[in-house]
Amino acid sequence: MEIGIFLPIAKNGFIVSKNVPPTWPTWELNRDVTLKCEAAGFDFALSMVKFRGFGGETEYWDHSLDSFTLTAMLAPVTSRIKLIPSVTLLSLHPAVAARMAATIEAACPGRFGLNIVSGWYKKEFEQMGLWPGDAHFERRYDYATEYTTILRQLWATGTSDFRGEFFKFDHAEIKPVPTSPIELVCAGQSGRGIRFTAECGDRNFIIAGGNTHDVDSDVRYIRGVTEQLQAIAGPLGRKVGTISLFNVIAADTDAEAAARFDHIVAGADEAAIRTLVGQAELDKSEGMSESLKKKSMFMGLPTLVGSHATVAAYLDRIAFEAKVDACMFAFPDFTRDIDNFVQHSLPRMESRTGR
């Protein structure tokens, strides 16, 4: 099973709490985290994209780096790890995104991918005059289908005459083309989102699970979503991988990890959470925003809480039994927790060591 790091590209990472170390999204931090993970054998580093945060006492996500630019800076200082920036489709024209991706790929051939974000945070786009109206909530995957079709045309041939509902091209040219295939990652959670990923993506995030006390249920659920994805992709002649995404709160013992979790929860930044949930509730469809409503403090990410041995055992089970191809991790403390994960959890994972 591959493993990746969810880079701390925005303030305070992926936990909306005052009781986690303040995380400022600096170039130096993201460079150091990426290089540390590369040295430890991580397979990929993914950075999200965000143009507006949620405020509160922690100024949660109010400060953020640019995903494409960060990736361009990481490309020449890394040598093995795959780099995956994100694009919010409403903020960047597909022809521009295609050229930017091809330019960065030239600096890291064979290890560049792109995460497709259909867009749910209305105020993020309204502030820039880019929100097309609330109908986008229901049409976003139709928009994303056209967008990814254009990307693949331009990367494959350097030209596109695409004519659709949202985009119309007249022999557009984007050259030079990438020297290696660019993998598209998606996070379709609803039925429509899963179908989009099966038709257009190469890997799909599953944002579910995280219950170390009932691994059987998690395995059944994750395996079910994976099978649903493959049932659509298979007849199309496509193979789409599954990536599980987790916050990891670990310690030497289960009791210590639980106490750490409780301390983090006690510091919830309630003002930022209210803003987050309020925006999520504008989206009446299923998917990412639905998970944010349920698990808003942890940004909808399933959160593994347990000893290093418990965390390793959980990850092995979803690798072997739920057929997960990769896991991506975020941590409360991106400096200390990565070291502990590498030292204490990774050596216990049979899905990594091959024991």
Rank of each mutant, 00 (worst) to 15 (best):
S190L: 07
G237Q: 01
R192H: 10
A271M: 04
T242H: 02
E290P: 00
G234I: 00
G237C: 01
V219W: 03
Y221K: 08
T212R: 12
K239R: 14
I243S: 00
A233V: 03
V185A: 09
R260G: 14
I243T: 12
A250N: 04
T242Q: 08
C186Y: 06
N204P: 03
Q228M: 12
I222V: 15
G209I: 12
I206M: 10
A271L: 09
Q279W: 10
F196P: 03
I207Q: 11
E183T: 11
I207G: 06
T275L: 12
V277E: 10
D254N: 09
I249V: 15
G188E: 08
V185Q: 05
N247I: 09
E183I: 02
H263K: 13
I243N: 03
I207C: 12
C200N: 13
Q228A: 14
I174E: 04
C200G: 01
G209F: 12
S291Q: 15
T212M: 13
Q279G: 13
R274P: 00
P176C: 07
A271Q: 10
V215N: 06
V225K: 11
G234Q: 07
A208C: 05
E227C: 02
F196K: 02
L282D: 08
E183C: 05
P181L: 07
I206W: 11
L245K: 05
D216I: 07
L184M: 04
R203C: 01
P176H: 06
A208G: 11
A198R: 00
A208N: 08
N211M: 09
E227S: 08
H263L: 13
L292R: 04
T253H: 02
A255E: 15
H171F: 03
E270A: 05
F246R: 09
K175L: 15
T253W: 02
N211A: 13
V248P: 05
L292M: 13
S180K: 14
D283Y: 07
A272R: 03
S244A: 15
Q189W: 05
F169M: 15
S190I: 07
T226E: 08
L245N: 11
C186Q: 12
A187L: 08
V248A: 10
A250F: 01
I249S: 03
A250M: 14
P235V: 00
D252Q: 14
T179P: 03
A255Y: 04
A187I: 05
A231T: 07
A172G: 00
R238G: 00
T179S: 15
L276S: 10
A258E: 14
S291Y: 11
T212N: 10
Y221V: 06
M288G: 09
G237N: 01
P176M: 08
D283G: 09
D216T: 13
G210Q: 13
Q279N: 13
G234V: 00
C200K: 07
L292E: 04
A268F: 02
A233I: 02
T226V: 06
V185L: 15
L184G: 02
